[in-house]
Design a protein around this nucleic acid. Structure first.
Length: 423
RNA sequence: GGAUAGGUGGCUGAGUGGUCUAAAGCAACAGUCUUGAAAACUGUCGUCCGCGCAAGUGGACCGUGAGUUCGAAUCUCACCCUAUCCGCCA
């Protein structure tokens, strides 16, 4: 959510930002609506002031005066009720429009429509060269008894999977390593680990900017709650309606949670394997910091770099892209995706998104802090995937596969697995 | 799922229809006193929106939303949440 005052004063910038994000919205219409809102509100407030004034006098008035005042106020009340009706209607439209105004993308965000237009800004690692015909992760993992898609489909249905044996062990190894890498307070990363709820109320999804949008993307419970697709949602909602202590900022959280995605619009995409599943686990970095663009930018670079470092320590080739305007979410100012090399597909696949939001989310969630002057301000928020499982397994096994169908293990994971390869 | 009690400012807590703008205490901040601190005393002390260069001024907010009334923290209805007990349960 943007500040209506800011929108009014910078309508060209806001309109241009929406255009860059390929969001269809007319800011002029919103401002006309806001004019109407202000006009009626001011009229109601004047009437209410009159009502308050007379109401004070009624108890001490003589019986005749009193009756006259009450009669007068009946008239005021009636006209006020009419105005309140139309205000209610206007406010409904106003709030809906406000929720659809996107945050303004950063100057450095390239133009473009889809992820095809994202700009590669970094390439790391040597792509493996195989002197044999490499297998894809489905075949590799199935043969090694790491995954069972057939029974996954039997039990869960489309996109269902079991991680079995070393598939499960490797997942735990990655989780343990990630905990040590990000969540150990003896390292520089120093995030506070949090196991967060995946069941959230819808208001939390509005808060993060996932709604309004396609409700079809979420699994809903019979109580009207949603299953979150990322720990970003509960972690952001955790401090909603709070005034934080300046000294407690920045808040650095490492969320761990199951993630649920219906993938409603993706039925023909990635139908095989572990790339696109309905249910997975993810470590997520999330930061709440003071309201400063420079501070946000610095943390944004940091959390993205953290993920890059983690991937580098696993020795998997990757590149980082700067997302184009059309590939940004409603609230995002700027986003980097880290994508890992998938040899058999001969392409990079996204495993991480780092974005910052300025006060877009915190304004919706009402997360504030008192600055050094004692003034209340909305905090800034950022988040970045730390590591998603099982998607990470795809690149891991394909890049580390050997001619005999075994998979070598990255050195950093060997101590958790108690061996150096999966056979 | 059942029963009971509740939701008032940063916290505790009074307030059941009109005598102004929600009592009091605690905490916080500033000052006086003090070598310094504590104590004591004095003062300040909510958020959001509108108008105004400003001093200021108008409105809203007592869990949320609706209703009754000239007037609602107070009455009515619905919902949400919390606590305790019972039931069920990994």
């Amino acid at each position: 959510m943007l500040d209506i005052k800011f929108i009014r004063e910078n309508k060209e910038v806001v309109q241009a930002g929406a255009k860059k994000k390929h969001v269809n919205i007319n800011i002029d219409d919103l401002i006309v609506l806001d004019d109407k809102r202000k006009e009626i509100l001011s009229s109601i407030e004047k009437k209410r002031a009159e009502q308050n004034l007379i109401s004070e006098k009624i108890p001490t008035a003589t019986p005749e005066e009193r009756q006259k005042m009450i009669d007068d106020m009946k008239v005021v009340k009636e006209s006020m009720q009419k105005e309140e009706e139309s205000l209610k209607e206007i406010m409904k439209n106003w709030q809906d429009a406000m929720l659809h105004v996107p945050n303004i993308p950063d100057m450095s965000v390239p133009d473009g429509d889809t992820d095809k237009d994202n700009k590669e800004i970094k390439v790391w690692g040597e792509k493996p060269v195989f002197n044999f015909e490499p297998k894809d992760h489905v075949e590799l993992m199935t043969k090694l008894g790491m995954v069972d898609f057939e029974r996954g489909a039997k039990v869960h249905g489309f996109r269902g999977y079991f991680l079995t044996g070393d598939g499960a062990r490797l997942s735990f190894a990655i989780w343990q390593y990630a905990m040590e890498f990000f969540g150990d307070n003896k390292t520089s990363k120093n995030f506070i680990p949090v196991i967060s709820p995946a069941i959230v109320r819808k208001v939390s999804l509005y808060g993060t900017g996932h709604l309004p949008g396609d409700v079809e993307d979420f699994y809903m419970t019979q109580d009207g709650d949603a299953l979150a697709g990322t720990a970003e949602v509960p972690l952001m909602a955790m401090h909603s309606e709070e005034v934080l202590d300046l000294k407690s900022l920045p808040k650095r959280y490492l969320g761990f949670s199951p993630c649920y995605r219906r993938e409603a619009g993706a039925h023909s995409k990635d139908v095989k394997g572990l790339i696109r599943v309905h249910e997975f686990y993810k470590f997520e970095q999330l930061i709440l910091c003071e309201a400063s663009h420079e501070v946000s930018v610095a943390f944004h670079e940091e959390i993205n770099r953290n993920t890059e470092e983690f991937i580098e320590s696993l020795g998997i080739p990757y590149h980082t892209v700067l997302n184009c305007g059309g590939d940004l979410g409603l609230g995002q100012v700027k986003k980097y995706d880290v994508e890992l090399w998938v040899p058999k597909e001969n392409t990079y696949r996204e495993i991480s998104s780092a974005s910052y939001f300025h006060d877009f989310q915190t304004r919706r969630l009402n997360i504030r802090y008192k600055d050094a002057e004692g003034k209340l301000r909305y905090a800034h928020s950022l988040n970045c995937t730390a590591i998603p499982t099982p998607r990470i397994l795809v690149s891991l096994v394909e890049n580390y596969q050997q001619a005999d169908g075994s998979v070598k293990l990255p050195e950093v994971l060997q101590k958790y697995m108690g061996k150096d390869s999966i056979k």
